[in-house]
Nucleic acid binder design. Structure first.
Lengths: 156, 156
DNA sequence: TTTACTGCAAATATTTTGCAATATC
DNA sequence: GATATTGCAAAATATTTGCAGTAAA
């Protein structure tokens, strides 16, 4: 799906959710949603806040937290708690087809597509639990840190 | 492995790590480690702190955070950032053979053994990345919340 | 005797909450 | 007009940091 199309689809999904829950269609919610769909990668509340400010659109942090929570509830967004302090978010459509490699030394996060694995996961069923989605985190050492480690060993 | 045996093994592993990094074998570290191996499930810093206080053993929060970090570094402990506020920890030996089902409605976390899946995961290799371990989180609705939802639908 | 470790308190950072003003339905 | 939503500031919470005293090597 193109960026514009997925943005439109997200707006529609949000509208439906808002309608079904008898909530209100505020301009803030749609502006924030658009911005979320402009950002291609992970983002934090802080990043999103700054990006919106740069556009000359001011919203309070409280509203940001509220809106993001709403997007998560209606399935448009996923939340990650990587090891840093603040939560990271990304579009649900992106999360489906990749997972995350996390370097335990430098904290860098890399995305990997692994369709075969995703298919295996999707085929799993757990009794009495209705699965919505998965998050797989792979912890280890990135290439950069591996190299750094080798260098240090040689020094000794 | 029995509880006592795994506790001993952990002590040995910690001693080796401490020696290799030229750190110090303080009584606090071993007392905390023992307590960690008494707790069978997930725990937070707060839980661990209280458990130690109840034993009449006082350590500062700072020392707890430090020690837990040390245990993670030497591979004895894993950290989870489920959706609550505080981080949860559990023994690495336990994590290997199960993963977590997380109810997005009530936040309850259930453990599931899935050896076949674990084996598949262990067989995966990612170029330029040296994998240490995995964390798989399955999000969805637990049986209890499924029932509650059905009841609410009927009310309408 | 060197310096890593501990405890305490203060600092930092993130997220949540209360409330008055406003805007949507 | 009823009430959901916003912005702001204050509060709550978790974790980190600085530093002086203590203890392991």
């Amino acid at each position: 799906m193109s960026d514009e199309k997925s943005k439109m689809a997200a707006r529609v999904a949000l509208s439906q959710y808002i309608h079904s829950k008898k909530l209100r269609r505020t301009p803030e919610r749609y502006t924030i949603l658009d911005k979320v769909f402009d950002i291609s990668e992970h983002f934090s509340i802080e990043t999103l806040y700054t990006a919106l400010e740069e556009d000359g659109f001011h919203v309070s942090k409280a509203t940001l937290y509220n809106s993001i929570q709403l997007f998560i509830e209606c399935g448009l967004l996923r939340k990650h708690q990587f090891d840093g302090k603040s939560a990271q978010y990304e579009r649900a459509t992106r999360v489906g087809n990749h997972h995350h490699l996390i370097c335990t030394q430098c904290g860098k996060i890399k995305e990997v597509k692994d369709v075969a694995l995703v298919n295996m996961l999707n085929a799993r069923r757990y009794p009495t639990f209705h699965t919505a989605y998965f998050a797989l985190y792979v912890y280890g050492t990135c290439s950069r840190c591996q190299r750094a480690n080798k260098k240090n060993e040689k020094k000794k």
